[in-house]
């Protein structure tokens, strides 16, 4: 075929594929905004649900999701980053470390409902935390660990080797090298992992199903041992379990969940670009 012609076709096909990727996102957003925006009000966001969720607001679900996400991140980020540092900077390439890496990759492929059952078995029953924010956070935390470890590892591995060599050649210890010459430069990448984990933790239903989520609990949680409502589960409940909920309330809830995830991501992205601007090479 004439190269000018094949070039045109290739360009058109690739552009089309790209547009097709964007299309669902735009359509989903448009539908949710169109159908849900009318439900959004001060009262909807900041008051308790009433009359079996058919009236009132979704404050407990919003706060519940915020707590769960926060708890998951507090638990998973330090643990995941430390594990990644060990894997990249300390462990040598042997059968053991390869096994650990393989396990982490596979952990990422475990269906979320399995995490839910695991959380029920371990945190709710075995440790006796009950169905609580603590159990839910830990379950979500374990679910996002692989994302955080994998992206932290990639971030650490992308720091140029000579940063380490130079630092060590100046007599810095391994830990000083990591702390001062590697971690600061890996931070943007680590934050990317955190963002991905955050979004996932906020949106998943299955892991919180047995570990924390309350069907209908029109009060705010008092401690980490309390059950709580959460947005994804609430959305599931009012969409499928309770008849007669107005359509705009359902889509409004979806809109709030979506906005919450976007806001969390936005905050993390701003944070990341701050670090990026400071460190350049």
């Amino acid at each position: 075929m004439d190269p000018r012609r094949s070039q045109k076709i290739a360009f058109a096909v690739l552009l089309l594929a790209t547009l097709l990727v964007v299309l669902p996102v735009v359509v989903i957003l448009a539908i949710i905004v169109a159908k849900g925006a009318s439900a959004i009000s001060w009262d909807f966001l900041f008051s308790m649900p009433r009359e079996g969720m058919s009236a009132g607001g979704i404050l407990p679900a919003i706060l519940g999701t915020l707590y769960l996400v926060l708890g998951a991140v507090i638990f998973a980020v330090p643990l995941g980053v430390m594990a990644a540092i060990y894997l990249v900077e300390y462990s040598s390439d042997n059968r053991m470390s390869r096994l650990v890496k393989l396990a982490i990759v596979n952990l990422a492929g475990v269906p979320s409902v399995v995490y839910g059952l695991f959380g029920l078995g371990i945190f709710v029953t075995f440790f006796g935390f009950g169905a609580s924010i603590l159990s839910g956070s830990l379950t979500l935390g374990i679910m996002i660990l692989p994302v955080i470890i994998t992206s932290s590892r990639e971030a650490l591995e992308s720091v140029p080797k000579h940063f380490r060599t130079v630092s060590l050649s100046l007599g810095a210890s391994r830990w000083q090298t990591i702390r001062h010459s590697v971690l600061p430069h890996a931070l943007p990448g680590i934050l990317t992992g955190m963002i991905l984990g955050l979004g996932r933790a906020a949106g998943e239903t299955a892991p919180i199903l047995f570990t924390v989520a309350a069907f209908y609990l029109p009060r705010l949680p008092q401690s980490v041992f309390d059950q709580s409502m959460a947005l994804p589960y609430h959305l599931y409940v009012i969409s499928t379990q309770v008849p007669g909920i107005a359509e705009n309330v359902r889509y409004g809830t979806a809109l709030v969940l979506l906005t919450l995830v976007l806001l969390l991501n936005l905050a993390a992205i701003v944070l990341r670009s701050r670090f990026r601007r400071k460190k350049k090479w």
């Binding site: 000579h162 130079v166 630092s167 060590l168 050649s169 100046l170 007599g171 010459s181 460190k279 350049k280």
Partner: peptide, 15 residues
Amino acid sequence: REKVGMVFQRPNPFP
């Protein structure tokens, strides 16, 4: 390594 310093092939200051 404090007593024996090293300069490398490519200039490699920290960023």
